[in-house]
Design a protein around this nucleic acid. Structure first.
Length: 106
DNA sequence: TTAATGACAATCG
DNA sequence: CCGATTGCCATTA
């Protein structure tokens, strides 16, 4: 365990359903640290356990794929998201459709 | 304790 | 719309 903050981020990230994404800002807010979006990004970068923590489902507030430490970089990330059903509008994720809203869970 | 680093985000020209 | 700038935060050396 690196830190409580990181663990929280990972835990939330693990709940993201297939075909949906969240923004770094959103994660930070859910972890109780609004404004720590940047720190969240670092957390994702350190994550190497992709199977249990789908960090590729985390994008920028505008839907742009900021970065990806996994295979293929942001390109591979985009491919993964698309294959999971995430809707893309040009080069960015269509947050209006693919943003995960915890309250929207059935 | 201070300074530096990033997978961010909002603002400005 | 795009690129540059500034502010923010947790972690690390």
């Amino acid at each position: 365990m690196k830190s409580v903050f990181y663990e929280q981020i990972y835990e939330i990230t693990r709940r993201i359903p297939v075909g949906k994404v969240v923004t770094y800002k959103q994660l930070a807010q859910m972890a109780g640290r609004p404004g720590a979006a940047r720190a969240v990004g670092m957390c994702m970068r350190l994550n190497d356990d992709i199977p249990t923590t789908p960090c590729h489902r985390v994008v920028g507030s505008t839907g742009a794929l900021v970065g990806y430490a996994g295979q293929g970089g942001v390109l591979g990330k985009r491919a993964l998201l698309q294959s999971e059903g995430v809707v893309f509008r040009k080069h960015k994720v269509d947050l209006a459709v693919s943003r995960w809203k915890p309250e929207a869970l059935p």
